[in-house]
Each structure stands twice: as C-alpha cells, then as structure tokens.
C-alpha cells in the first residue's frame, strides 16, 4: 500500500474533500468561454486568406482553453471574495471542493498548454496574442485592477475583447484594422454589460469590498455611464459597415438591436425600483443578445458572401 492510499484509509468521510470532473469544468467559466469562442470565430471568419479546417479548429480550441485557463486562475485568486458573494459562493474553490492551489495548477497548465499548442500548430502571432490576453486578464484585471478601481472592468475588458484579433491572427499571422474594430466594439460593450450586472448585484460587491462603480460612485452615476457607453458602443457598431467589412444584415442588426439596447439603457437610467433593478437585469440580457446578434450577422454575411474585405491589412 502506498503512502497516499494509507493516508486516504486513515481519513474519515468528512475529510475526503474531493472534486469531480464537473468541478474542473466549472473552473473554465463555460458561459464566458462560449461568448469568447463565438467572437473568436467571427475574427477567424472575416480574415482574408484560407486556413485548413484543422488549423481553424485548433485555433478555436486554443482560444477556448485559454479563456478557460483565465477563468480558472481568476477563481483561484478571487476565492476569498467569491465566498462572500451570492452569485459566486457556489464555485468549487469557495465551496472547498478544490483548493486555490488546485485551480492555479489547473489554470496554469491549460494556459501554458493552449499558448504552446497555438504557437506550434497555428502561428506565433496568434500564440503571442493569446498569451497577452491571458496575462492581461490574470495579472492586470484580476490581481491589479479588480480590487483597486471602479475602472476595473473598463480597462480589464480589453482581455475579453481580444479574441477576434486572435482569430484573425490565426489566419493571417498579423493584425489589421477590421479585427481591431471588433476589439473596440467588445471593449465598449463590456462596461454597460457588467455595470448592469453590478447594479442588481451591488450588495454582493459591497460585501466583498470590490469597488464596482455602483458601490464607489453610486447607482445614479452608474446609470449615466451605462447610457454614455451604450451610445458610444452603438455608434462604434456602425464602423464595420463604414469600413466595408460588414453588409446589410449587420447594418440592420446593429440598427435594430442597437436602438433596442439604447432604449433599455435609457430605461435603466430612469429606473425607480433601486432594490430589485428589473431594468438592469433586462439590460444585462439584452447586452448579451446584442453582441451575439452583431457577430452572428458578421458570420451570416461571410457565409453568404455579402461582405468583402477592403485592403486594410497592416502586416
């Protein structure tokens, strides 16, 4: 009998605190991963040139695993504040099913693995961008900004915005204006999306002493900022049409859902029920729908050949 199994034999049932495969899967933040993957697909689809389907699949796998690694490392570092918030207290680390060390080891392995595989099997430009994205999310957002400034999700949002650039780089090995426009759109989308959430979760954030905008500057200021960023977002949403890499389907999507998004943002600004925040909840859902619709429109147009890329490639 090995030393390890002897140790297990000596443990009582209550001491055997073990994790299932599902707990490790939960560390990957699968819902966040799905949106990251979707925007990465769009970057890959609009890029000029051709890659083998296996290369495209590998690039998307690396983007997904890299996003999951970021989530795992975030959950390892934030276990103390996750335990204080009702939205996150059920996660594997605060629940004690996994230690922060387990999550760190898992996340680090996936991060190094996804970057290495991207570099070896796709190209170094995409791998470098993926490494920057993971590093920015973990070191700049999670470890530095999140507990220090109400601008945490504004600046930190860059990490979540980069997948279209990674997808593009996976095809071209370089960067260009079109993916950077998509990055800018997601960057501007992040504040109204997360501030809507933080409006109806403000007690959670206050309890955990996370300086989200409603906690630090108040709900009224947050509502104004939501409207401001939504106006900027919907305006920036027209840039792909202006630059010529999006067509009529995208134009209709950005106009119709963009106006709907803006109306919802204004309704949040006029919110009177500051306890349940029903408008903020609705805005949170509409924000997800907006981003999904925009990138779905890009993909539909690309598949149908309705849009073409102008010669904007930098590298």
């Amino acid at each position: 009998m090995t030393a390890l199994s002897e140790k297990q034999q000596s443990l009582t049932g209550a001491d055997l605190n073990f994790a299932s495969v599902g707990d490790y899967f939960q560390l990957l933040k699968p819902r966040v991963m799905s949106l990251v993957l979707f925007t990465g697909v769009a970057g890959l689809a609009i890029a000029p040139g051709h890659v083998h389907i296996a290369t495209a699949f590998t690039a998307l796998l690396c983007i997904a695993v890299g996003a999951g690694a970021s989530g795992a490392l975030n959950m390892a570092y934030d276990a103390d504040i996750d335990a204080l918030m009702s939205r996150t207290k059920g996660r594997p680390v605060p629940q004690g099913r996994l230690t922060a060390g387990d999550a760190t080891a898992f996340g680090s392995t996936l991060a190094v693995g996804s970057i290495t595989v991207m570099g070896l099997l796709v190209n170094y430009a995409a791998a470098a961008l993926l490494a920057f994205t993971i590093g920015f999310y973990v070191f700049v957002y999670t470890m530095w900004l999140k507990r220090r400034t109400p601008q945490n999700i504004v600046i930190g949002g860059l990490a979540g915005a980069l997948p279209p650039a990674i997808g593009w780089a996976a095809v071209t090995g370089s960067l260009a204006v079109p993916p950077l426009v998509l990055v800018a759109i997601i960057f501007l989308w992040t504040p109204p999306h997360f501030w809507a959430l933080s409006l109806y979760r403000s007690e959670d954030y206050a309890r955990a002493k996370v300086p989200m905008l409603p906690v630090v500057a108040g709900k009224s200021e947050t509502r104004k900022q939501i409207v401001l960023y939504t106006v900027l977002l919907v305006a920036a949403g027209f840039a792909p049409v202006y630059l010529g890499f999006a067509g009529p389907v995208y134009l209709v999507a950005n106009t119709a859902i963009g106006v709907w998004f803006l109306v919802q943002a204004i309704r949040v600004a006029l919110e009177t029920d500051a306890v349940r925040e029903p408008q903020a909840r609705r805005l949170f859902a509409v924000s997800i729908l907006y981003l999904f619709a925009l990138f779905a429109a890009l993909l539909v147009e690309q598949a149908a050949g309705l849009s073409h890329l102008p010669s904007l490639v930098i590298g």
Partner: peptide, 21 residues
C-alpha cells in the same frame, strides 16, 4: 453502508472519472 465508506466510494469514482478525463 457507513458514511466513510460511501464517501470513499465517491472518492474512488471521482478519481476514476478524472483519470479517464
């Protein structure tokens, strides 16, 4: 079954699933 035994069986199952994964 004693609780410790049930917990041990769950542990073995979880470890086995992890190894397969």
């Amino acid at each position: 079954k004693p609780r410790a035994q049930l917990e041990r069986e769950r542990f073995e199952r979880a470890r086995s699933m992890r190894n397969y994964a």
